[in-house]
């Protein structure tokens, strides 16, 4: 377990050494901030529903950009070999990298906490959905980070890792809007696969174990698949 902490620490350090973390954060804050506040004053309502509506889509692109380097960069510089010959298990490596990615997602959300603060000065803000929204955002971030990590483990090319991760996350996000094309028999199953649906449930302030289990399962699948990929690469 200690090894996980060392790897996590090192990966976090790496995020802030490379410009990627700063670029991704800037883009994320700019896009969400502009999209949210440009509509905010039109609706003239003191809530954050619009922000959380946009979040699944922005996360689908921003999180793979964070996770793309985790494995791909190591494989392209060759440091993957040095890492794998240190006394650490695959599990230590995957968990360390995953938690580092998740920590960065949390860091990404941190500045947006100022939005509800400002809004609460302007009107009566119902804090329930806001807290639910942030909890949901963390769980969704956990799921997408797992997917992104898997995409990164597949290739030594960071761009391919980004696109693969973004495509999977995007598909999970929009799947419930495509239900029209799904045959009736599968409808029930497929409708449960969408990330937005589960996220919106939590963001309404209803914390249902089914929604949490969904995100945890996606994250776990991502980590397990990464483990299989590492095993295969030996």
């Amino acid at each position: 377990m200690q090894q996980v902490v060392f790897i996590l620490k090192k990966e976090l350090q790496d995020f802030f050494i490379s410009p990627i973390a700063y670029i991704v954060m800037t883009v994320f804050l700019l896009v969400t901030g502009w999209l949210f506040f440009s509509a905010f004053f039109v609706f003239d309502q003191a809530d954050m529903r619009n922000f959380f509506n946009l979040l699944p889509m922005t996360f689908a692109f921003v999180i793979p950009a964070i996770t793309m380097r985790l494995f791909a960069e190591e494989m392209s510089t060759g440091s993957y070999e040095t890492l794998l010959t240190l006394p650490v298990t695959f599990r230590d490596i995957i968990l360390g990298k995953y938690l580092a990615g998740l920590a960065l997602v949390a860091a990404l959300l941190l500045p947006t906490l100022s939005y509800p603060l400002f809004i609460s000065f302007m009107g009566e803000l119902d804090w329930g959905p806001v807290i639910g929204g942030y909890i949901g955002a963390l769980f969704m971030g956990a799921a997408f980070t797992g997917v992104g990590l898997f995409a990164s483990a597949l290739t030594r090319n960071q761009i391919i890792a980004f696109i693969t991760g973004a495509v999977i996350c995007f598909a999970l996000t929009v799947i419930e809007r495509m239900l029209f094309f799904v045959p009736g028999a599968l409808l029930k199953i497929v409708s449960q696969l969408g990330a937005s649906l589960h996220f919106q449930n939590i963001a309404r302030g209803i914390i249902d174990s089914r929604d949490l289990i969904y995100f945890v399962s996606v994250a776990f699948l991502g980590l397990y698949a990464s483990h299989l990929v590492m095993q295969e690469k030996k």
Binding site: I17, G78, Y80
Partner: peptide, 16 residues
């Protein structure tokens, strides 16, 4: 791996 110290060819270390 704990017993072995290994230097891969051309020392691929973290460049950053």
């Amino acid at each position: 791996k704990g017993l072995i110290g290994y230097l891969p060819e051309s020392a691929p270390l973290y460049p950053g």
